[in-house]
């Protein structure tokens, strides 16, 4: 199984913080209240969690793709 890549579109993030509710160990907000992610790639087991976070983002600022 391939890993998962997560990217934050910083210009889109509005600091809703829904991603922190879903996966506090993966997402955080920086000093500008913009989401940051703890790593670039995650193992396949975390795909569902990450997709939930992306789905919960009202600003559609979280992009989940397959790792190469």
């Amino acid at each position: 199984m391939t890993g998962v890549r997560v990217e934050i579109v910083r210009s889109a993030c509005a600091g809703y913080a829904n991603c922190l509710d879903v996966a506090p160990e993966i997402f955080d907000l920086d000093e500008h209240d913009v989401a940051v992610v703890s790593a670039g790639e995650f193992p396949a087991e975390q795909r569902q969690l990450l997709e939930d976070a992306a789905h919960r983002c009202p600003a559609k600022a979280i992009i989940v793709t397959d790792a190469d």
Partner: peptide, 30 residues
């Protein structure tokens, strides 16, 4: 101001519920 509401009963407990507030952490301290 960007408050967002779900039409989706799976996102929140009741559809129409508030599910996103900008600056929820820094501004409202969650």
């Amino acid at each position: 101001h960007g408050w967002s509401y779900s039409t989706d009963g799976t996102l929140v407990s009741v559809a129409g519920e508030l599910f996103g507030v900008p600056h929820y952490r820094a501004g409202y301290d969650r």
